[in-house]
């Protein structure tokens, strides 16, 4: 296991490459989710306002 984590002495480069890759993907993924929530909430409140004013 230690040997695997050590990556033949290149641990820093290999793991930070994979790390930055997945961090970026997570930011994209969760950013998209929160954006979805905000947009849907906005439209929902807009519908509510419309039905209330009617």
């Amino acid at each position: 296991m230690n040997e695997f984590l050590n990556m033949g002495g290149y641990a820093v480069y290999v793991w930070s490459s994979f790390g930055v890759f997945f961090v970026a993907m997570f930011i994209d993924f969760f950013g998209l989710r929160s954006k979805e929530k905000i947009i849907k909430r906005n439209i929902k409140s807009m519908i509510k306002r419309k039905t209330n004013s009617k």
Binding site: G8, Y13, V14, S17, F18
Partner: peptide, 27 residues
């Protein structure tokens, strides 16, 4: 990830650092 980090053999010139290829080249 499993195939690239565990199963694939180390490169005879670059050692394990070549494994960065698995995120670099697809990106």
């Amino acid at each position: 990830l499993y195939d690239g980090l565990v199963l694939a053999p180390a490169d005879y010139q670059q050692g394990d650092s070549f494994r960065i290829i698995y995120v670099h080249v697809p990106a």
